[in-house]
């Protein structure tokens, strides 16, 4: 429009000018209106998702909130809804998460580092990269089926905490790899060159520069992937997680030598989302209240984990300046 104004301006008559001003003004008005309309659409989109989330949380708080108490955390599931708690479920979730982190974090970071810093860029690595990104989007139940075939039957690990942890570990591994690579990529090349210029080896460069500078991003990715794993139900149901379990795995620490034991890894388990799923499918309404309370706790856990991720990212961003 602005160009049109300049080229079509040979007539210097007052009438022409006023018509042009009107034109310009109206075009500005139209643009402002479009601008406003877009803002409204954006705001509505935001409100829609926010209100949905809020309604969900409010509903959970209203039905499940009164049920959340200290006793709810410290009692086992039971036939009596009012006596039932989530002790075995949250301990199970914790144990499974421990195995998942031990499996996914070292593997994921090492793989990401290798792909970003060491590997040559050729068609094989491109192919591998493409597959990792694809793997991150594979439905979780597929991992459950694979785990049932390989871990449960193939390797005879049974329906244990170890199986569940490894399954969820494999599930989030691609996410850890992808976020690690992104974090490493954000370290400027000049840092690498400076490190080489001082005579460091590649490993020294990675160890003293790349890893510390990218650890904020890596940690964020790790926590976000773990908060995804904690809510997973489908793969665990596929490998045959239990719906009722009223005991805890044996403690990993004991008084006699060698003080640590790993028997807990072979124990049967249940996790929070499965406990919730089981209560939802009970006929009595009192159990549905328990399910809502479990959902609330699960939601809080995810919220806290994501909060920690955001905080870490914020701290590292503030510390690093180049």
């Amino acid at each position: 429009m602005a160009d049109a104004e300049q080229t079509n301006d040979p007539t210097k008559s007052k009438v022409g000018e006023s018509i042009l001003t009107d034109l310009v003004l109206s075009s500005i008005r139209v643009r402002k209106w479009i601008d406003f309309a877009f803002m409204v659409v954006g705001l509505l989109a935001l409100l829609f998702s926010l209100i949905t989330l809020l309604a969900l949380i409010l509903d959970l708080v209203r039905t499940g909130g009164p049920r959340v108490s200290w006793d709810f955390f410290t009692s086992f599931p039971s036939r009596k809804a009012m006596k039932a708690g989530i002790l075995s479920a949250w301990v199970g979730s914790l144990c499974v998460m421990a195995v998942t982190s031990l499996c996914a974090i070292p593997l994921g970071i090492a793989a990401g580092l290798y792909l970003e810093e060491y590997s040559k860029k050729n068609w094989i690595t491109t192919f591998i990269e493409l597959n990792i990104v694809n793997l991150a989007g594979v439905p979780s139940i597929t991992f459950g089926l694979m785990a049932l075939g390989i871990f449960v039957y193939g390797l005879g690990m049974g329906q244990s905490i170890l199986t569940a942890g490894l399954t969820l570990g494999l599930l989030v591994l691609p996410i850890v790899i992808v976020t690690t690579r992104e974090a490493i990529r954000s370290v400027p090349n000049s840092i690498r060159e400076a490190s080489f210029a001082l005579g460091s080896s590649k490993w020294q460069m990675v160890r003293h520069h790349i890893l510390p500078y990218s650890s904020g991003g890596i940690l964020t990715g790790v926590i976000i992937s773990l908060s995804r794993a904690i809510g997973e139900t489908a793969p665990l149901i596929t490998i045959g997680a239990l719906t009722f379990i009223a005991f805890l795995p044996p403690s990993p620490v004991n008084e006699t030598f060698p003080f640590v034991n790993f028997q807990w890894l072979t124990e049967p388990f249940t996790v929070l989302p499965i406990q919730m799923f089981n209560w939802v499918s009970r006929p009595e309404k009192e159990f549905h209240v328990n399910a809502a309370a479990t959902g609330l706790i699960l939601l809080m856990m995810t919220l806290v984990m994501n909060g920690i991720a955001i905080y870490i990212r914020y701290r590292f961003r503030r510390k690093l300046k180049w």
Binding site: L102, C103, L162, P250, N261, F262, Q263, L265, T266
Partner: peptide, 11 residues
């Protein structure tokens, strides 16, 4: 991790 997968006994 290695020990973990090694020690498997049901009591």
């Amino acid at each position: 991790v290695g020990l973990a997968s090694g020690a498997m006994a049901q009591v």
